Amino acid sequence: MILTQEYRDLSILPVSNEKWLVIACDSSAGIGKKKQDAVEIDPAITAAFCLRVPLMELFCYGAEPIAVIDLIGNEYEPTGERMILGISAELVKAGLADIPLNGSTEENMPTKTTSVGVTVIAEIKAGKENFQMNETCSLLQLGEPFVGEQVVKNRERIFSYPLVKALRAEPGVMDMLPVGSKGIQYEAQLMTKDSEFQIHFLEKDGLDCSAGPATVILLAVKTDQEADILSRYAELKKIGEFKKR
């Protein structure tokens, strides 16, 4: 019997003594080209950003994606076809063009809103310990909180996969966590779970805004390496500090 471990939004399956599987997923509805969609946009973009969320979660954790499954709640032509194109293009951007892509579309019922779910399966070296804060450190922010139509208007401003991977490889970066609909404050507090630390924000504005499809990533950075990292990554800004209660 495989005992699954839940960590934040990830499911971790220790399938062997060498590697573990890590699973992340996301869904999107009401964003597309159908009659009752709340936001009108090319379904290819909808699906691409739906994929982006679990990819960011996995990259921030340090896991390497090995397969993607899309569950499209619409017909293949034209909606599903556009979504698959968007997912495939996003995999290229993430450097994952060659990993398997499988899925399903809805061919039995007519649909009036756009809907898609994406699951990404990744792997990581067995024995990885989940992050627990144990020292004073700085909170840095990558990106800005965008949602809905703002995501489309600001696509060129949203950070890239190579940048996220580079930051994850920095020795001074202790933890990274994408921000979604619950906002910066919620995710920053999640970073302190089961520890003696609490977050002190430099400013109070915008902490509860939705960051939609992971348009913000929070970084816990060692205090003595904060200045160096900020000097080399102009995309980052300091928004708080983690200190003992």
Score class of each variant (00 low, 15 high):
I2N: 12
Q5D: 13
D9P: 01
S11V: 06
I12P: 03
I12R: 04
W20N: 14
I23M: 12
S27T: 15
S27I: 11
A29E: 14
I31Y: 08
K33Q: 09
Q36H: 14
D37M: 04
A38E: 15
A38L: 10
I41A: 09
A47D: 14
R52D: 07
P54T: 03
G62A: 07
V68R: 00
I69V: 13
D70P: 00
I72Q: 04
T79Q: 05
L85R: 13
I87L: 15
I87D: 00
S88Q: 15
K93H: 09
L96Q: 03
L96T: 10
D98K: 13
I99F: 05
G103M: 04
N108L: 13
S115K: 11
S115N: 10
G117F: 03
V120W: 01
E123K: 04
A126T: 15
M133Q: 12
L139F: 05
L139A: 05
E149W: 00
V151R: 00
K153L: 11
N154T: 11
R155P: 01
R157N: 14
R157V: 02
I158N: 08
L163F: 04
L163W: 09
V164Y: 03
K165L: 10
L167C: 03
G172V: 10
G172S: 08
M176W: 00
P178R: 07
V179K: 02
K182M: 05
K182Q: 08
I184M: 01
A188F: 02
M191V: 03
D194A: 11
F197R: 01
Q198F: 03
H200C: 05
G206N: 12
S210R: 12
G212Y: 04
T215Q: 02
I217D: 04
L219P: 06
L219K: 04
V221N: 01
K222L: 10
T223R: 01
Y233V: 15
E235Y: 05
K238S: 10
G240H: 01
E241V: 12
